[in-house]
Design a binder for these strands. Structure first.
Ligand SMILES: [Mg+2]
Ligand SMILES: [Mg+2]
Lengths: 610, 610
DNA sequence: TAATTGTTTATAAACAACGAT
DNA sequence: AGATCGTTGTTTATAAACAAT
């Protein structure tokens, strides 16, 4: 019964359905297709070829901009800019409350040498598919410095508030509805204290939608010093996610340790006397993610992040979406376990990476306070400062001879064996916050401990996928619990809606894309619900932007890796995945130069730029 | 039935049983305890504090040297040198045949800048425990250049020769005893060709003792260009390890892919047209390991590497050991699956790391030809060249304030947040060849597909280790098949020998250390057999030698990592683990300066040194 | 539609090294 | 003083869920 899913469903990395722009509800701004609004500033990237940077005000419709770029790109050929970096700019109004902590010193940007700045440009989509959504926040990467102000108290309470009980009790199983024994978040609507928030079910036994990596970050970042012993991490997680204290098998601790060791993002420090080992987060990799930040992100976004009653509907009022969520009450009577880190809409979590240099600053960029202070892309409360390095001396983007798409990410195109530039971005996990997308874990009923009894076949089959013996596919897959009609799904649209195992979230996300197989496995059902938008042809290829291997011999002779500053550029359209920090919208078939929009030079925007 | 073990048993990283020096058989050299033989040269390390380098001729008894150092170190306090780098020197005679390929150009050491050289200093122990063993080989790390000569033909045949059938046939299951369809290794005693070597059992279905990582390296390094497509890797492994073609579940391919992605040692390259993806090995990380190299290492070492009849007893004649191996015929009738990469004796695989500089050369060091040619620590056939950099300008070992031991490796002591030296060694996998120790896989009988039925307990236990519900320990462990007396093992010695599931190898390795629990799981049994030598107190602490995180922002401001050149230093006493390349014998309680031995200065040995 | 190839996350395990009994 | 356990760390193996071709 307590057989939790092997891993949360992966619902990210899917390409953005830029194709279909159907229901297009006019939100705040009228999104003019084929024409980028004039409040969006377009400029060539100072160093990267065929790359343009768009400064998009929060009030603008990001989706329409992307649509326009897409359309323009298709019209033109492979010529012209084919990569775009989207940056959010705060137009002053919009959501005044910051996603993070208020106070953040933007001054003392830290070492301004040849740094590289990273920022997470998030576009939180609202209702269904490709609506007009304003940009909301940018969560920059830590610049090797402290994440700063650090929200200790806030960090946890947010999530705690959503739980029916706090996690402070140890061994009593059914200890539901407990009072908050700690500092309560004054912001949260917790009048008296009994039932903090009328959560849907047993928040107690709900497995959180966060990966171990994410939870560890939450835990460590909740401490002012950002250091935690293993035991403290255990305790923090148990306190904030009772699931682990109450229902998870003890093996979860093994997984925690495994994650700490595996991800080089987590570093172990030992006191001088060698008595205590603290786990920390590599400062350069620390995005300073905290539970409340993530939770607020989810709450702030239009769609209620999960079936869990979204009482905290501060500003945005999820219109029809919420209703639609309610419509799909989940099959047997269990809710989906995993809730998405970010709403499962077309919310954009666009990671951006910008080369930083002391002379380059993009002023009107807005950033959440907490995210700032690391000298990356920083912006105070209302202020906005973005620094962009013109071109890191020594490194040259090898645009020259990019040809194939070779996606599937994380690969590095080896240049000439002689070149071997220096590594700029260590590894993929470097920027991986661990806030995986997952969106409901589905470890509900189908306990099916292990898909592979496999005891019958002795000599077994070898190469040929004999269905009988071995699973046939080299990628093991969960056996479908109810095997009515596993294969041969519906042609496309037109099908039933209220199919079992379909979570409300799914419905909210893909309102008019019914899952094709009513008898689908939960995972399979979800797969159907993934943003399918016909053949996607955008944001696909990124030929010359390999990923970042981890290692780098510094002072040594031939620098092995040839990572460019742009490596790892990703436009993660699926929202929640914070794993990639770099943004690169690559339009394979772009032709002309400026897409017909006013092409502003960098010096226009950035006075400092000489 | 075909339920293979989750992972091969880990039999490495154990500390060397330097304590017990009991059976001490006089081998070639009389090992004088408490006195390092005069043919061993001792000198201070030019840059590392409290570090000495010992040049040990092959004819010398390494164990006695270590014993002496240990004893001396215990006598003295924490003062004086407490780290030692042991280097092998070829005294001319010994095994004339090289472990690797013959031709290797030692000249053109490649870029001599501020490089760091790595070498694997291997001491292959012979019979039982702590015998006197000559050093045999040094396998340096690739210097970012090509591994060179590359043994294409030899690479595979060695292992093929040991199989009853070649792997070229595809789907026929019982195709035993096939002729070699490829080039046969002329060196191997394969007269006519039918049964290449009278292997013990079904070599066909024997799972190889190599990790996926190692096998992938074998495969890729077997190609001259050192590139392979995924499919080619599959095929190579199937051809050379029929187990995967014949008995393994298709999931093994998933594991291959997983390993390729996970380990940054493996890099994917795509052709310019993006049509083909090749997998390569990061040149700096490529140890150029090939199957035949590894096999030869195992064969060359004194103890027969496995129950597989060691016909190839070229020179060394495993005296009593071989006999003892025969004594334990394996229980039911099946042999142990995993054979050790290197003999399961106290063979030392001491990885060494030396800063390289054009001016420093340690002449009389012997290295296996194949290992050379990368400008690291290189030595031609009989020649020997070792280069040691006096002190990489710019990096300073922070010996200063090391205090605690904080072992458990792979941790980095963060220096002052301001310092942040450059990364020298990317990550732990950087040097991990994947040639894990494992030593018999034991996936034989006990099919026990999954140790966790776990279906009964619904609400289950939480924190308290209620034996009933959850496994109690946070580290899952295989349930003991026959649960007679799980805990409270025998006091120590004195027990039965011919217990089921005990492989001959084990017996050979730990002749007089009977496994304590006759009803042990195979794995448990093995655990008992691991070189236990009482409380080890040597080679434990390495305070200021943190590990190497993977990432490194190069041209950027505050270099995050503070890895010193010595980071990752490890004395791997368990032999086969090639995962660590650096050697550091750290004696916690050392006192005086030169241990009473003649302390030779570097300039004495290295004339070039000014 | 289905298979192949890649990337990640989750779990289980096997050890190693310590620390507390 | 040694043996036993439990905790903490490190790795490898497998299964999976997706993504992209
Ligand atoms: Mg780590
Ligand atoms: Mg890789």
């Amino acid at each position: 019964m307590d057989e939790s899913p092997r891993r949360p469903l992966i619902l990210r990395k899917r390409k953005l359905p830029l194709e279909k722009k159907e229901v297009r509800v006019s939100y705040d701004e009228p999104d003019r297709l084929q024409c980028i609004p004039e409040n969006v500033r377009v400029m060539d990237h100072p160093s990267m070829p065929d790359t343009q940077v768009l400064i998009i005000p929060k009030t603008a419709d990001l989706q329409s901009v992307i649509d326009t770029l897409t359309a323009k790109g298709k019209e033109r050929g492979p010529e012209g800019p084919n990569k775009f970096i989207l940056l959010s700019r705060n137009s002053s109004e919009d959501k005044p409350e910051s996603l993070c902590q208020p106070s953040l010193d933007i001054r003392n940007p830290g070492p301004l040498s040849t740094q590289v700045g990273y920022g997470l440009l998030e576009k939180s989509g609202t209702d269904c598919q490709e609506k007009a959504k304003p940009l909301t926040a940018i969560k920059p990467l830590n610049k090797g410095l402290d994440c700063n102000p650090l929200d200790d108290s806030l960090t946890n309470i947010q999530w705690l508030g959503r739980m029916s009980t706090d996690g402070l009790e140890s061994n009593s199983v059914q200890k539901v509805y407990k009072k908050e024994s700690r500092e309560l978040n004054p912001k949260l609507p917790q009048p008296t204290g009994e039932v903090v928030l009328p959560t849907t079910k047993d928040q107690l036994s709900e497995r959180p939608p966060y990966s171990y990596m994410a939870m560890i970050q939450f835990a460590i970042n909740s401490k002012k010093n950002r250091k935690m012993t293993l035991k403290e991490i255990y305790t923090w997680i148990e306190d904030h996610f009772p699931y682990f204290r109450n229902v998870a098998k003890p093996g979860w601790k093994n997984s925690i340790r495994h994650n700490l060791s595996l991800h080089d993002m987590f570093i172990r420090e030992t006191t001088n006397d060698g008595k205590i080992s603290y786990w920390t987060i590599r400062p350069e990799a620390n995005r300073c993610l905290t539970l409340d930040q993530v939770y607020r992100m989810a709450v702030d976004s239009t769609v209620s992040p999960s079936p869990l009653a979204p009482q905290v509907s501060e500003q945005q009022q999820k219109k029809q979406i919420t209703a639609e969520v309610k419509k799909v009450p989940a099959v047997g009577g269990f809710e989906r376990k995993m809730k998405p880190l970010l709403p499962r809409t077309n919310s954009l979590l666009v990671p951006v990476q910008l080369p930083l240099a002391p002379s380059l600053f993009l002023s009107p960029i807005n950033l959440p306070p907490a995210a700032i202070q690391h000298s990356c892309i920083s912006a105070p409360g209302g202020g906005k400062i973005l620094r962009i390095a013109p071109k890191t001396p020594g490194e040259q983007v090898s645009h020259p001879k990019r040809e194939a798409s070779s996606s599937r990410r994380k690969q590095r195109l080896v240049l000439a064996p002689s070149e071997e530039p220096l590594v700029l971005f260590p590894d993929s996990t470097f920027f991986d916050s661990g806030l995986a997308s997952d969106l409901s874990s589905f470890h509900d009923i189908k306990d099916e401990p292990h898909p592979e009894p496999d005891s019958p076949g002795k000599e077994c089959t070898f190469k040929t996928p004999v269905k009988g013996a071995h699973p046939a596919s080299s990628t093991p897959s969960k056996p479908v619990p109810t095997p009515p009609s596993p294969r041969k799904a519906m042609p496309l649209g037109s099908e039933d809606h209220g199919l079992p195992d379909v979570s409300p979230i799914q419905a909210a996300i893909t309102p008019r894309r019914p899952s094709r197989d009513p008898l689908n496995t939960s995972s399979a059902a979800f797969k159907e619900l993934s943003f399918y938008s016909g053949p996607y042809d955008l944001l696909n290829t990124m030929p010359d932007f390999p990923t970042s291997p981890k290692a780098q011999v510094s002072g040594t002779g031939p620098a092995p890796a040839n990572r460019s500053i742009t490596e790892g550029l990703v436009l993660d359209t699926t929202n929640d995945s914070l794993s990639k920090i770099l943004v690169d919208i690559d339009f394979p078939g772009l032709d002309s130069e400026d897409l017909g929009i006013g092409n502003i030079s960098w010096s226009q925007i950035i006075p400092d730029l000489k």
